[in-house]
Computed example of a mutant assay.
Amino acid sequence: MPEIRVKSEIAGSVWKIVKQPGEAVEAEETLLILESMKMEIPVAAPKAGVLAALHVAEGEAVEEEQLVAVIRA
């Protein structure tokens, strides 16, 4: 199965984790929500698959282009 690396598009902090490793995800389904400049920005799965790993935790700061999740398609 190919792995899809999901990266943060912006710097901010992880406000809420929506999906957990092992769960199936659909294309464009929200995996987690970042907070940046008082705005909530969803991070979505680019393709359907299974969430293999999360590389962040709620409350953690993330940088732009940081790896946040891996999906097995």
Rank of each mutant, 00 (worst) to 15 (best):
V43P: 01
K16L: 08
L34T: 00
L31F: 14
I17D: 04
L54T: 05
A57M: 07
V56D: 14
E40I: 04
W15K: 07
E29S: 06
V43H: 01
E35H: 02
S36K: 09
V50S: 11
V50F: 13
I4Q: 03
E28G: 08
K16F: 01
A45Q: 00
V56E: 14
I41L: 09
A24Q: 14
E26Q: 14
G22Q: 07
E64A: 14
L32A: 12
P46R: 03
I33M: 08
A11L: 11
T30K: 10
L51W: 02
E65A: 12
E40H: 13
W15H: 12
T30M: 10
E58V: 13
K19C: 06
I33W: 03
G59T: 05
K19F: 10
T30G: 12
E26D: 13
K38R: 13
E40N: 10
M39V: 09
V56H: 12
T30E: 06
P21V: 10
G59A: 05
E9C: 04
E65I: 04
V62I: 06
I10Q: 07
L31R: 08
S8T: 01
R5I: 10
K7N: 13
V62L: 03
K47D: 00
A45N: 01
A44L: 08
L34D: 00
K16T: 04
K7Q: 13
E23G: 05
E28F: 15
E28C: 11
K19T: 10
V18R: 00
K16D: 03
I10D: 03
E64Y: 09
E9P: 11
M39Q: 08
L31C: 14
V43S: 06
L32H: 11
P42T: 05
L32P: 08
K19V: 10
V50M: 12
K7G: 01
K19E: 06
P46D: 09
L54V: 08
L32F: 15
G12V: 09
G12L: 07
M37G: 00
L31D: 09
A48P: 04
E29Y: 12
I4V: 13
E9H: 10
Q20I: 15
V43E: 04
E9W: 04
E9Y: 10
I17M: 06
I33A: 03
S13Q: 15
L54E: 07
E60V: 15
S36A: 15
A44S: 03
A69D: 03
A52Y: 04
G22W: 08
K7P: 02
I4H: 04
V70Q: 02
E26F: 02
G22F: 02
A69F: 09
M37H: 01
V25M: 01
E28T: 11
P21Q: 12
V56L: 15
A61Y: 01
K38N: 07
M39T: 09
